[in-house]
Design a protein around this nucleic acid. Structure first.
Length: 297
DNA sequence: ACTACTCCCTGCCAGC
DNA sequence: TGCTGGCAGGGAGTAG
């Protein structure tokens, strides 16, 4: 599911249940997700306290009292639910006005954390593209999954200069460049489409055209950075987007999907004031791209 | 070093 | 109603 706004929403939902709490019991109901769980996964968690819960790109990072970091990725279909272990349900039932599963699919509840706080945190992931790893804190920055990741788009250091430098000389499309976690962290198919719409730039445009030959940003780069930051901030405020089975940790739906301007709107009129265009769907790198050919150049 | 393509896995849905 | 092909929010691996 999850792009940066959804992962950040999950982080905020898990934080009260995890931070300062100890893993009282951990259930790993299968030996692997996308990869095998690390050797001794359960034993390396049980008895440890979570000292902090952070996020980098689309990864959740739980700092443990052992010095390990529990690295978690939701893949395409991963989600967490928080409930109370005493059976009292805190997760409310959801109203059914958007795509959501007909019933909780417990068959895909792969990992359960029973916390000392009484919280029960369940990781569910039908497609098993998710990931859980344990990495010593000191090795995290150099870990293969972390070291190549580009700047956090909501960080102060992310600006037009940085984005232009990353796109300098790139022959690939803007869509592909922004989807590349090495260029900027945390964007995925939805928010790339929405950011490009916001900047009125075509997803087919060569990435290098937001920079001059020396890598200095032009006005397109400025617009793009503003659009990226804007759409991500708005989406986080809305609790992320809920498509198909994704929900927040409390079971509630995010609602940013109602504010998509182009994503999944093929054939609908462009919402740019004065634009007579129609949203088009094309395939880039094997994935759908939605954009308005009239006002995105 | 780049870029493009394939594959991982399961579920859902439109179309026949 | 039932089957089938295509598609889904991600990312790693491989081959040019």
């Amino acid at each position: 599911m999850p792009e940066l706004p959804e992962v950040e929403t999950v982080r905020r939902g898990l934080q009260p249940a995890m931070e300062g709490a100890r893993f009282a019991k951990v259930e790993a109901r299968r030996p692997d997700l996308r990869r095998p769980l690390p050797t001794g996964f359960v034993k390396r968690l049980e008895g440890r306290t979570v000292t902090g819960l952070g996020r980098r790109a689309k990864y959740l990072l739980a700092d443990l009292s052992s010095g390990d970091v529990l690295l978690m990725h939701l893949g395409m279909s991963g989600s967490f639910r928080v409930a109370q272990d005493d059976g009292a349900k805190t997760a409310s039932k959801t109203p059914g006005h958007f795509h959501y599963p007909r019933a909780e699919d417990r068959a895909h509840d792969h990992i359960v954390f029973h916390m000392s706080s009484g919280a029960r945190i369940t990781f569910n992931d039908p497609r098993r593209f998710g990931l859980m790893l344990l990495v010593p804190r000191a090795e995290l920055a150099d870990h293969p999954l972390m070291k190549e990741i580009g700047p956090e788009p909501l960080g102060n250091e992310f600006d037009a200069s940085l984005l232009a430098a990353a796109c300098r000389g790139k022959k690939t499309s803007l869509k592909a460049a922004l989807s590349d976690q090495k260029v900027v962290a945390g964007l995925g198919n939805i928010y790339v489409c929405e950011a490009l719409y916001g900047a009125h730039l075509s997803p087919k445009r060569r990435a290098s055209t937001i920079a001059d030959r020396k890598g200095k940003p032009n006005e397109r780069a400025e617009r793009l950075v503003d659009a990226i930051k804007g759409v991500l901030q708005d989406a986080i405020k809305a609790g992320g987007s809920s498509l198909r089975d994704h929900r927040r940790t409390d079971g509630e739906l995010g609602y940013f999907q109602h504010r998509f301007r182009v994503y999944d709107r093929e054939g609908q009129p462009c919402v740019t004031p004065g634009c007579k265009g129609t949203v088009k769907r094309i395939v880039q790198g094997g994935r759908s791209t939605f954009f308005c050919p009239e006002c995105q150049k």
